[in-house]
Each structure stands twice: as C-alpha cells, then as structure tokens.
Design a protein around this nucleic acid. Structure first.
Lengths: 228, 228
DNA sequence: GCGACTTGGATTGTTGAACAATCAGTGAAA
DNA sequence: TTTCACTGATTGTTCAACAATCCAAGTCGC
C-alpha cells in the first residue's frame, strides 16, 4: 500500500471526536496504522498531507506527534519533519537490555500467584503455531511477554513494556518478513509458565533470561544477514 | 513565593532559543522550577498567564505541557487545565513498586563492575549528613539511586528512573518539610556499595529491597500523619 | 431556607492563516 | 570538480478567532 493510499484511507476515517481529545485521537489512529505495518519504518509523515487527510489542523497534528515521539514510535528531526521510527541495531540491543531487566524481575519478585493470563497467552501461541499463523504467533507472544511484566502490578512498567513491544513490531516490519521467528520459543514460554505454577520462580527467571539472550542474538543475526 | 512572583521572575528569563526548540526550552524551564519547588504541587498553570510570562504563544506552551504531562510532572485535566502534579498515596506506592523492580534488578544482574559513581554519591551523602545539610543529603541520595539504575546501562530505564525521582521530589514538596528523612539510610547505602564491591550482588540486592520497603513504609506513615 | 436549573464569564480546545527559519537541491561561477 | 548563492518546499512559531466546556453565581419553584 502506497503512502497516498494510506492518506486516502485516512480521509474516510469517520466520527472524529470533537473537543478535548482530537490530538489524542490523532495519536491513536497513527499508532494503530504504524503498529499494523501500514506505514513503513522510515517513511516521512508530512504535516500538510497528514493534517489534510485527517481533517485536522497542523497544530493539533503536532500535539499528536509530540506524544508519539515520546513513545519513540516516531522520530522527530528538527526542521526536517517526523518519520516512522526505524530501529537501529543499537535500538534492538537497548530493547533487549530493558526486557532482560523488566521481565525476569517481574517473574522473580512479583507477589502474585495468578498466572491465568500467561496460560491463556501460551495456549493462543500454541494454537497459532499449529495452525501456521505467523501473525497470530507474534500477537500471542507479545501478549505473553506483556503479561509477564504485568505480574509486577506496576502501571508504569506496563507502559514501558507496551512501548518496547511497539518498537519490536517496528523491528519486524523493517526486516522484510517476520519469518518463523517465534516458533521455537513457544515451548520455552510453556515451560516458563509451568515453572511458575510449580513455584520455581528463580528457575523461571533464569530460563527467561536465557531465552531473551537467544532471541536477541537471533534477531541481530537476521538483521546483519539482511544488511549484507 | 507567590505565583505572581514566579510569573514576574519568569518574565526576566533571558535569551530564548529561537527556532526549532522553543517548546523544548519552555518544558525545561518549567521542569526546573517545579523540581526546585518554586511551583507548589497542585497549583494551576494557566496557559494565558504562563504564555505571557514566558513570551511564548499558547500553542507552543501546549507542546511543552504535552511533554511534561508524559513525564507525569504535570497533570492535565481536559477542559480544566494543567496542574503541577500532586502525588497521591497510590502514586507513592507505584513509585516504590517501580523502584523495587528496577533497582534490585540493576544491582543483581548488571554486567558492570565499576562502582565509582555509587562510591562518590554515598561519600557526598555522608558529608552532607555530617554537615547537617538536608538538601545536600536529598540530592546525594537521588544521585545514588540514579546511579544504581544506571548500572544497568539502559537509557530507557535511566529515563524512567529520572522521572520517578522527579516525582519523588514532588512528594517531598507536598509534604511540608522533607525533615531528616534520608539520614538513617546513608548507612544502608554505604553497606550496599561495600557488598557490591565485595561481589555479593545478591546480598546487595536483598538489602536494597528491604531498604526500599522500609522507606516506603516510613513515607506512607508520614503522609498519613500529615493528613490527620 | 433549600435544591434544581439557568445564565454568564473565564478558560481550554482547535482552527486557519501568516511569517520566520531552516533544509535539500539546483545551477552558475571559479 | 568544487563552491556558493539562490530557490522552493517544509517545519517552527505566532496570532486572532471561534467552539466547547466548566465553574460559580444567581434565579426559580417549592
């Protein structure tokens, strides 16, 4: 889908909110489109064109851009405009650095013993794998890891994780196909839930850390292979 | 200092940046003033008055507000305006929830063995305590905990911690005096650094977790006492 | 008196047009 | 080929206006 198609599509987005939330609404629309991969990483978001397409003034659009820039979904270059973020190799490293602290910490030290959200996510992942749905596996996997951080019970850390996962989607979108990247990890996820349910939090955390280490390596390798 | 004084003061703030960063500049000015306690938590930031005082348009001011709201330094109530954030009891709980994951995780799992920043911070704290400087102790303590998270080497987590510490300052500002809150913890900090330097990361993490638990309890008790 | 409703003023939310500053590219001059 | 000024396009910022919303004060009925 070309950028003009997107713009034409946005023009039909109905029922804009009226007062006190237009900027917020614009931000969420863009967030969706970017998460869905309809706007390629690196593509420029012109204030003029986007504002016209969404039926919104440049000023309001700018407010939305500020929010998205804070979430790192979008990169703002002064006097040059905003672009859909295109995570670099360093960004990937940073993503996994964060995850290697956040996720094991939640697993090891969370006070909850309710793992139903995790169970449900791994089940969805298993079904998606058996059916061969790559998108379903990616979604279920993201839900699994979001649920892991959610064990901690902190809104703030949940928010950080949400942003990290959004950035992960950008990583997958900038690599051509997200291939069968997630398949091998379904078993690990299942094992982690089992360990948690058995009360072996430290083992679960250790496995998770190792898991993240492997995933990072594989991802970096694939990116390097693409650049070559 | 009354709010009008602040506004008059801001009017003399010199040398505004010109293009491509005015919004950013405004945000940093407000951030400073709030951190310094010159703007009381809960006080309203009028777009009209502030914009005039800073010599900046309402639109630009609004961009700054968006940034500060994302950092939770400021609370935005639709159609009512923005107010300097006034952390609630739940916010305090959330702050310590985050810290109890972030700080011990960095201590336990960071790859670095360079603790000079920590050493320097505890030394500053000790000097401040011996001299009786409450402000100095607070600053040194914040630097200490920021350095702990910095062990992790993640920009993102550093940013979260920066925001958490800014919110802590708001907590202290809303309680009348920050009393001798920090004094008892200087010894704990010293002990944590010693454990780290000795390679006992797990013990250091455990002590830190306990430390944070105690600090939270004490803070909640003081707030409850104030409300009564 | 006292509660529900209306009204008015103040403030925020949003827009559109304008101008200033900056950037990328073009083409001419050395 | 390199350099440099110019041009056009886009972003950064301001301003003035209007719409929507909230708050408080007043009004009405009881």
């Amino acid at each position: 889908m070309t950028l003009d198609d997107i713009l034409a599509d946005l023009r039909h987005q109905t029922s804009r909110a009226r007062h006190a939330e237009t900027g917020f609404w614009v931000a969420s629309v863009l967030r969706e489109r970017i998460a869905a991969g309809q706007l390629d990483p690196g593509s420029k978001l012109s204030e003029e064109a986007l504002g016209e397409a969404l039926g919104v003034s440049r000023n309001t659009l700018r407010e939305a851009f500020s929010a998205l820039a804070a979430e790192r979904i979008v990169t703002r270059i002064p006097n040059r405009g905003v672009y859909v973020a295109q995570p670099s190799v360093d960004d990937i490293r940073e993503i996994y650095r964060v995850r290697r602290y956040l996720e094991p910490a939640a697993v090891a030290w969370s006070p909850t013993t309710d793992f139903t959200a995790l169970r449900r996510a791994v089940e969805r992942a298993r079904v998606a794998r058996d059916v061969g749905s790559v998108g379903g596996m990616a979604d279920a996997n993201q839900a699994f890891h979001a649920s892991i951080v959610a064990l901690g019970g902190s809104d703030r850390l949940d928010l950080v994780m949400t942003q990290i996962l959004a950035e992960m989607r950008l990583v997958f979108h900038s690599m051509g196909a997200d291939t069968a990247f997630h398949a091998p990890y379904v078993e690990d996820n299942i094992r982690i839930v089992e360990l948690l349910e058995a009360g072996d939090r430290n083992d679960a955390a250790a496995l998770l850390t190792d898991y993240l280490r492997r995933a990072e390596e594989q991802l970096l390798a694939e990116v390097a292979a693409e650049d070559a």
